[in-house]
Amino acid sequence: MKHIVKIMALLVALSAFWISLLQTSVLPQSYTWLLPLYFIVSLGCYGLLMVGVGLIQFPTCPHEAILLQKDIVEAKGFLKEKGVDIGSE
């Protein structure tokens, strides 16, 4: 099944649930009418929250950059010794 179909099915299920709530009026109608809006807003909040958390916890590795510089020096030394023309840079 294509992924879009899964997502559509999920949305249809949610809509069906919402319509049934409207029909049966378990909740006051005015609340029920606002539910899709709450859904969209909370989806947006979830997205922003995940981006925010991801940004705060973004894994960095400054130490690796230093290690890489050492590796580069080592590699250049070896290659020069073997006569590989890596330029004078």
Partner: peptide
């Protein structure tokens, strides 16, 4: 790059933001 032991070096805030946004 996004689990314990992984990581990125050399990205500015904008690049990180784009990457996180794209991932979410």
């Amino acid at each position: 790059r996004y689990v314990k032991g992984g990581g990125v070096h050399g990205w500015n805030l904008m690049r990180k933001l784009t990457s996180r946004g794209a991932n979410v």
